[in-house]
Amino acid sequence: MSPAPTTTRPSGVPATAAGLRATARILARTDAHGITRLPVLDGSGPFALRRTGFPGPQARVCMVGAMSAPLGGDRLAVEATAEAGASLHLTASAATVALPGRTGDAATYDVRLTVGDGARLDWLPEPLICAEGSDLWMTTTVELAPTARLVLREEQVLGRSGEHTGTLHSRLTVRRAGRTLLDQETAYGPGVPGWDTSAALGGHRALGQLLAVGPEFEDAEQRVRLLGGAAPERRDATGGQGVLAPLTGPAVLATAVAPDALRLRAVLDEAARSLPG
C-alpha cells in the first residue's frame, strides 16, 4: 500500500491509532474484447464490494456499508484505478457516517483515484454525514491521464437530524497530466474558526460538489450556470443553491449548499443533467 497523503493532516493525528485499518482496492482493466474486467476487487472491514450488472464496456461496483465507519481512530482508504481504456462506475449503498470513537482520536479516510488515458471513472458515493462528536480527516486525491474522464460527486452533511456537527477536514486534489486542476479544502465544525458564517455556509448544513473532467470540455465554450435557488428566475434562499462553472482546464465544477442532503442532491442532479453525454 502506498502511503496515504498527509497534505492537511496535523501532527496531532497519531500514526498508530488503535482503531480499525481497512483499505478497499479496485482495479479495472479492459480486455481484448473491450470488456472492462476487475482483476482486483478487494474489500475488507467496513467495505464490502459488490459487482453489479453484466460484463460489458463499463464495470459497475457498489460499496455496501457492512458496518458503521469511520469511528474515531479508524484509518480507512479506498484505492480505485481505471487503466487505459477501461470504464468503472462506483457507487455506495448507503451514507457514510463519521462517528466518535472510544479514545477521542481522529479518524482518517483517504480516497485515491487513478484514471488512465481513454478511461472513465465515475465516483458517486452517498453522502458523508458528520455525527456530533466525530472528528474526521479526509483526503480525496485524483490522478488523471491527459485523455481520462472523471465524474466525481462529494456530499458532506454536518450532523444528523437535530444534532450538532462533528469536525470535518477534507481536501480534494485533482491532478491532470501532471498539473493541479483543482485543490480545495473544507473544514467545518467545533474548533474550526469561521466555519459557520455567512461567507462559508450561511446556515446551511449540507454542501457538495460535482466535478466532471474530460477532453469534451477542452474546446467547448463552458458558460456559468446558477443552480437551484441561486438562479435569478428562482431566487429562493430557503432551498439549495449552487453554481456550475468551468475550471482552468477541461473541467466543470458544481458547488452547492443546502439545508439538508435531499435538497443538496436536487441541486447536484440539476448540474448533472446539464453535463454533455
Binding site: 497534505t7 493541479t180 479544502e185 462559508a200 446558477l226 441561486a230 435569478p232 453554481v243
Partner: peptide
C-alpha cells in the same frame, strides 16, 4: 510544492460571486 499551501474554500463566496457578476 503546492500541497503545503492552504486551500480553504468558502462555497457561498463562490456561488454568490457568480450571482453578483450577473
Amino acid at each position: 510544492g503546492p500541497h503545503v499551501l492552504p486551500a480553504a474554500s468558502a462555497p457561498l463566496l463562490d456561488i454568490t460571486a457568480e450571482q453578483h457578476a450577473a
